[in-house]
Every structure is written in C-alpha cells, then in structure tokens.
Design a protein around this nucleic acid. Structure first.
Length: 810
RNA sequence: GCCCUUGUGGCGGAAUUGGCAGACGCGCUGGACUCAAAAUCCAGUGGUGGCAACACCGUGUGGGUUCGACUCCCACCGAGGGCACCA
C-alpha cells in the first residue's frame, strides 16, 4: 500500500468543500490579494490540458499567499454566452440555457477534481439573469453618458456566417475574415449599437505605462489603438465655394510636394464634386469597390487602382491646382477619408502616381524619386519657407503656418474605431432598449432589469433571413405598449460575448449583491486584480474592452481603481508530444481526466508546473507525467512506511547535514514563488528530497517545513502528510509559511576557482573571508596553475573574494 | 515590409549583477536487491581524441567589447506571434 492518490484526493477535496476552507470574507486586519484566472467558456468538449496550466499557477500563488498571511480572493465562474451554444441549439433544437448549465456542471466537476482552492460561494455565470442584469445596467450607464449610440455605419458583415450572417467588431476581423470560422467580411452600412471606446483612446494608451504586463501585450494594445500625431490640411475646391477638402497627414511638411488628392470611393463628397463627363467612370468604380471584401481590398490587391473625378483642389501653400481622384487605397474609416498625394516621399502615393502618370515632385533632399519614394531624413528643398529645415522643424513650422492662415491645424488620429456592440443573435444579453412607433427610443427602466431572454422554440431560433436577430420572432416578448398606448418594439440585437467578461472581475468581489454590481465596501476592500493569468489570444479583445468599461465605471465613481488588472501573465500553450498545437484532427489531444484518474491531480499539477516556464509553449510528454508521479511516490516513501505508519527515521530537532540544504530550499522556493518560477521551485524541492535520501535521519522540523513548501504545488498529498506528521486535524492551508535562517546559508569554507587566461585550471577550498592577496598567493602557489603559467609572465591578476582568481599571463 | 518573442546535450529545461555552461527531470548505461522480472535504491551520462591522467571543442551563424560573454554591442540565419495601403 503506497501513495493512494484516489482516496487522498477525494478525502481532501471533500474536506475543503465541507469546511469551506477557502471562503473569502473582507477582513480589514489582513492585506488582500486578488488572484484571478480568465474564466472559461464552458464548451461541450470539457476541459483541455491547457486549462489546468494557468489554473494551477494561480492556485499555487493563492495557497502561497494564504500561508503568507494574505486574505486571498480566488474565484471562478463561467463566460457562458456565445455563438457555439447557439449553433449547437440550432442543430439539435435543445434549449441553450439547459445544456449550458449541463456543460457548466461538467466543467465544474473537472475543475474541482484538480483541487483548486476557489471560493465556490462566489461562482458567477454570465447567462444568469441576476448577473446579466448588471451587464445591462452598465450598458444603460454608457448610454446615459453618451458612450453608447445607435448609428447607421459601415460594419463588418459576414453574410456566410452560419445562422444567417453576423456583424463582428473590428477586433474580430483577422485578414479580412472573421476570427471565428474564417468567413469573408464585407463592408455594409447597417444600423448598429456602438460603444464610444475612442473617447478613451488616449487614456487606454497612456495608462498602459504603469501596468505590470508583458511588454508584447502592451505593444499590441498601443498598435491597435494606433495613435498618430499630425495635422489636418484644408484645400479649396475649384468652382465649388461650398465645400472643402480636408486631409490628415503626419507629414504636413511635405505639402509643397503634393501633386494630387485622393478620396475614399465611399466618401460623401465624391458625388458632389464629380464632373459630368467623369460621372460614369466614378460610379462604375464605386460599384466595383463595393463588391470587394476587405481581404480583396487589401491583402489580395497590392496593385493600385483609382479614377479621376474631374475636379481640382487648390494647394493652400502655393496655389497649385491638384487633380482629385478616388482610390480604394484610401480608407473611408481612417482620418478624414481623404489624403494628399505626395508621391516623392510616400511609397503608396509613388505607386499610384507612377501608375497614373501624375507628377512626382521631390521636396526632401536624398534618394532617387524616379526609382522609389524617399522616406528617409533630409533637408527640405523646393518648399519655400521650409527650405533648409529638417523634418521636425519643418513639420512645426508648416503647422504654425496652416494655423495662422486658417488652412489646417495640429491633429491626433487613432486607428482604433468605436466598438460595434450589436450581434444579430439569440444567445446573448438583450440590449435593454425599446424603439417606439413615434420614432423615439428609451431604455428599459432600471427597476425592470434584468430584461430576460425569452425562451425560443427551435423554429423561432432560426435566422430571420433579414440579418435580424432571431429575437424578432419572439412576438410576445418583442412588442410592448406604453401607458399612453404608444406601441413599441424591443431592440432585437444582443450584446457580444465580450460584454459579460468586461466587468466580471468586479462581480466576484460581491457576487450576490442585489442592489449594485458590487457593494462599495467590497469594492474598496478588494480594489482590483493583483494577478491575472490567461492566454495571450485576448491581448486586444477582452483586455481592451475590460479596461474601457472599468475606466467608465471609474469615471462614474463606481469603482476605486482606474485599471482592473495590475499584473498580467500569459501562460504558454501546451503542445502535443509532436510539438504541434493540440487538435482532434492531429490526434494529439490529452484529456486531463485520464491523467487525474491514473496518476492523480497532484501529479498533473506538478507535471504541468515542472514542464518549463509558465509563459512558454511546452510539448506534452507522457514520460514526464510518470516522472512527476514517481517523484511524489518518492516523497511519500520519504515519510510513510509500506503499512501506512510514519517512518521511524524521523528525529527531533534539526540536523547538521540537512541544515544548509533545508534553508536553501525554503529561500529558493519562496523567491521562486514570488517570481512565478514554478519549474525551478519544484526542482529545488527535488534537490532537497535527494539530499534527505542520503541521510539516515529525517528531522521532523525539516520534514514539516518541506511539506508546507510542497503544499501549494501538491495540496492533497501535502494535507495528508501534514496530518500524519503533526496529528493535526486542521488544514495546512493557513499554517504560516516556513522561514529560513540566513546564517545557515553561509559557509565558512568555499571552493575558489583558479583561472589562467579566463580558463578554469584548478580549484581550492579556502576560508570564505580570505583576502584578495591570500587568494592570489594560493593561486600562484597551486601546482596546476604553475603548470599553465610556465614560461609566461603575469600581466594582471583579478581576484573576487569568495569566488575566483583569474591570472592573465602572456 | 514593420514590431515583439525566441534559439543551450538524445528530449523538457537551469544558470541572481558579465564570473565553474548543462541544476532538476526524462531517456540511456552500469551496479545493488530478486530464482527472475517489475518496482525501488546507488552511480554514471555535452562532443571528439586517449587505457588513463588529461587535452581540445562546445549555448543558431559571423564579427566586436572585456581579464572573463549563454548573458552586453553590431550584422545575419531559423522558429513562433502580432500589425500591415492607417496617410
């Protein structure tokens, strides 16, 4: 009878649940620590071995911080709205609410079988009306602040998306296709709900600086927001006193080099300025462009195309007549949707000008503009009052000139666009808005929230075919009548999956509060998330949206912190044994349930943490799992006999032989936990066990300390060993973390390295406080060193006390 | 094209501030135990040459800085990820 993981794990999971060991309550006498996992979407597939990686990491930190005396908030919940459930419902006719709850139960059982120390009393579920009541409430606050508006706008329309097509947010479009499923995306004007995330663009960029996040993620967010500082320039239009051309440029200094103007084909001004004889060509081009998907407009078509409108603009700085063209390389959605063409110093403009034979006029010295655009630095030429200036001076001077002559101004532009918030779907939070037949619109009153999703039959859930949400089929739900008899229709679009996850970290602080998204007291105590762990795939979606909502709530005085996640860590992916991403088709998927049954949750936890650094991708290895299990067996045998009794090698007091390695282990494991270096912490625990096996005596104090160090990693085994060792009936969870004796780490003798010309040639044990001179003398006297010095003269000697001596000789 | 990350034994990976490269684990080899095997325990294990002491080589490639470079600098190559007609 050895280490029986089945019984031990069941026993302690039962104990923790029965005793509510990990229940968190606000306790002002303790420092708080909030450690959070990105909550999962409870798919029908169940847990993947990738899930436990991050969850184990946060669980280790949670358990460590508890032992360090922190009051730890460590919750779990379900991001349960979303498209896969709706597609499954369409296929099977089953009610999404029902099978979503079944999936949640499966996920929960699986997660609980891994022994994570979540406070399950705080479990949340985004599809629970008591939860989405507050998602809707937040939407209403956004609306009241003018941050949620309905607009007829160009949206990303994916007509082939199963279930009748779908509008997706800009962030959900990858290479002109939908992130989910890869369906082609077209631009289409549609009336949609939009959130004004652009109003927060500057703060979303600037506040990144103070966050303890991976630099790569911060950089991605900065790129996504895409702040660019430049100027607008206004051009009069020949024979059209009413209108003006206004372009955005980061290089206003090249205005003297402008040789044409380009408008986006969709721009409103196009129809007004096009001359009669160019009308046909322009209309044909517009039609052709409208049929292209985003992918065709960008990736697939690097060749420039465009049409002349027949109109001319007047360059404000020199009065030049510039032809106005339309071309699809100018995007309606960025800047003003118009650009000035400076072919000599912009490659795109150069390509266009070359193709259509427009003049190329250099205004910066350098390069050869007959071959390509020159985008390097240089002195201005052919530029009137800018001649002789360098880039920055010229930009500043030109902007001053434009402002003085009312022909332009300094301007900041963003790549970020407002967040398209409507989804033509059933399985999401209903947007709490009513459209009245008198043309007005109102919010569902707060005291009527939550606005519940109606149940739909299989037929009702089918797409309407118009691109409208299936909720349009729910007649009883849809139609409302006001007290004054005016009829209305509910908004049928629902919120995207990102809504529920944009604020869930706040709900955990006070998950049952019926009167607020969370109570003041709880919010002020827990503040924000100290450590947030999850996959890097959410770099610009979830993490940007959650920061945005948090800032809005902060501005409303509802949350105490301007940023929701102080420290962010992205765990790496667990790859298949063949170093490829796990997938069903490749047949390299590992099911965590199998590992837990055969080897135990503690083995899985230890293995996943020992594989390598948390943040890196690592291949799965079955041999690695058995190795981890063998080590836990070894730990068990270190303390427990075959018959289950404690080993008779246990002794009172400490031991000289183990003193140093024990203290080193406490120090190393503690330091490594602070830095999330779980793999090296485990390796140090292994070193300690190896040393213990070399000794006959096992000092109880060291054994207990070791079990405490092990507890965050392998909590079930540690609880069992702790109860055997100490006879305690209490959990190890709150036993104070071991400390180490600094003095025990210092030797009075140390091995000193003797180098000749940087190569190790000899070693000698010396007193640790030996002086430089003593070390140098010992090195020179060393036989082997002398051998290498033979025939050479010593040029220099470097000696670092306690480390090494290097003799440089020629 | 631009940006970020990364490259160390047969494999996963370690190496604090520039100071013994390869901790720990897997695998492999040998030994102990056993009638035998498994399990376990102990030892060895970067490459080349040598019976050996030992020598030389060695952290993607080529340079450089330094008494000393996996670590810092320059150029290049490979892998992974992000952005990409954003004016």
């Amino acid at each position: 009878m050895g280490y029986d993981h089945q019984n031990i794990e069941k026993k302690w999971q039962h104990y923790w649940q029965g005793n509510k060991t990990f229940k968190a309550t606000e306790d002002p006498s303790k420092d708080k620590y909030y450690v959070l996992d990105m909550f999962p979407y409870p798919s029908g597939q169940g847990l993947h071995v990738g899930h436990p990686e991050g969850y184990t990491a946060t669980d280790i930190v949670a358990r460590y911080k508890r032992a360090k005396g922190f009051n730890v908030l460590h919750p779990m919940g379900w991001d349960a709205f979303g498209l896969p459930a709706e597609q499954y419902a369409l296929k099977t006719g089953r009610d999404p609410a029902t099978f979503t709850n079944e999936n949640i139960q499966t996920f929960k059982n699986q997660i609980q079988s891994l022994g994570f120390s979540y406070d399950w009393d705080r479990e949340i579920n985004t599809t629970d009306p008591e939860y989405y009541k507050w998602s809707q409430w937040i939407f209403e606050q956004l609306y009241k602040k003018g941050l949620a508006y309905e607009d007829e706008m160009m949206v990303n329309w994916a007509p082939d998306f199963p279930g009748g097509g779908l509008v997706v947010a800009n962030e959900e479009v990858i290479d002109g296709k939908t992130e989910r499923g890869g369906y082609p995306v077209y631009r289409k004007p549609m009336k949609q709900w939009v959130l004004k995330i652009t109003a927060y663009a500057d703060r979303l960029i600037d506040d990144l600086d103070d966050l303890d996040w991976p630099e790569a993620i911060k950089e991605q967010q900065r790129n996504w927001i895409g702040r660019s500082v430049g100027a607008t320039v206004r051009f009069d239009i020949e024979n059209d006193p009413e209108d003006q051309i206004e372009v955005f440029s980061t290089r206003a200094d090249t205005l003297f080099g402008a040789s044409y103007i380009v408008l986006a084909p969709e721009h409103d001004l196009v129809d007004k300025i096009t001359t009669a004889d160019q009308c046909e060509a322009v209309t044909a081009y517009q039609k052709q462009i409208a049929l292209k998907s985003d992918l065709e407009r960008t990736d697939l078509n690097k060749d420039k195309s465009g049409v002349f409108t027949g109109a001319y603009a007047i360059n404000p700085v020199n009065g030049d007549k510039l032809p106005i063209w339309i071309a699809d390389y100018v995007l309606a959605s960025y800047g003003t949707g118009m650009v000035m063409g400076v072919p000599a110093h912009d490659q795109r403009d150069w390509d266009f000008a070359t193709k259509f034979d427009l003049p190329i006029k250099p205004v910066i010295e350098g390069g050869d503009v007959t071959k390509e655009a020159y985008t390097g630095e240089g002195v201005h030429i052919n530029s009137g009052f800018l001649d002789g200036l360098n880039k920055q001076e010229a930009i500043d001077k030109m902007i001053a000139w434009l402002e003085e002559h009312h022909a332009g101004a300094k301007k900041v532009n963003y790549r970020l666009r407002d967040w398209i918030f409507s989804r033509q779907r059933y399985w999401g939070e209903p947007i709490p808005v009513i459209h009245w037949e008198d043309g007005t619109m109102s919010l569902v009153p707060e005291d009527e929230l939550p606005l519940r999703l109606p149940r739909l039959t299989k037929d009702e859930m089918k797409p309407s075919g118009t691109g409208e949400s299936p909720l349009a089929n729910a007649k009883d739900w849809l139609e409302v009548t006001r007290e004054d008899g005016v009829k209305g229709r509910r908004e049928t679009n629902t919120m995207p999956q990102w809504a529920g996850s944009s604020w869930y970290f706040l709900r955990y602080m006070d998950p049952k509060n019926p009167d607020a998204l969370a109570g003041k007291k709880a919010l002020n105590y827990w503040q924000n998330v100290d450590l947030y762990v999850g996959g890097a795939e959410h770099a610009v979606l979830h993490l940007l949206y959650a920061r945005f909502w948090n800032k809005v709530l902060y501005d409303l005085g509802l949350v105490p912190n301007k940023e929701p996640f102080h420290k962010l860590v992205n765990q790496g992916m667990i790859l298949g044994g063949n170093h490829e991403k796990m997938s069903k088709s490749k047949g390299n998927v590992v099911n965590p349930d199998d590992i837990v049954n055969e080897y135990g949750a503690d083995t899985l936890r230890i293995y996943e943490m020992f594989m390598g650094p948390l943040t890196q991708n690592k291949p799965w290895s079955e041999d690695g799992v058995t190795g981890s299990r063998r080590w836990l067996d070894r730990v068990w045998r270190m303390l427990v006999n075959e018959d289950g009794s404690l080993t008779d090698k246990l002794t009172d007091g400490t031991s000289k032989e183990l003193e140093k390695v024990y203290n080193e282990t406490v120090k190393k494991v503690t330091d490594d936990l602070e830095n999330l270096h779980f793999n090296t912490a485990i390796s140090q625990l292994m070193v300690f066990v190896n040393e213990v096996y070399k000794q006959d005596q096992r000092p109880a104090a060291y054994m207990e300390g070791f079990v405490q160090l092990l507890a965050p990693f392998a909590p079930h085994l540690a609880e069992e060993l702790w109860s055997k060792l100490t006879g305690s009936t209490e959990s190890i969870a709150f036993v104070a973390w071991p400390t180490y004796d600094e003095k025990a780490l210092v030797d009075d003798q140390k091995e000193i390295i003797f180098q000749v010309n940087g190569k190790v040639r000899s070693k000698q044990v010396m007193p640790v406080d030996a002086s430089k001179e003593e070390m140098e003398a010992a090195a020179k006297a060393d036989e082997k060193v002398q051998k290498y010095l033979d025939g050479l003269s010593i040029k220099k000697v470097i000696a670092i006390p306690g480390k090494f001596v290097n003799i440089v000789a020629k």
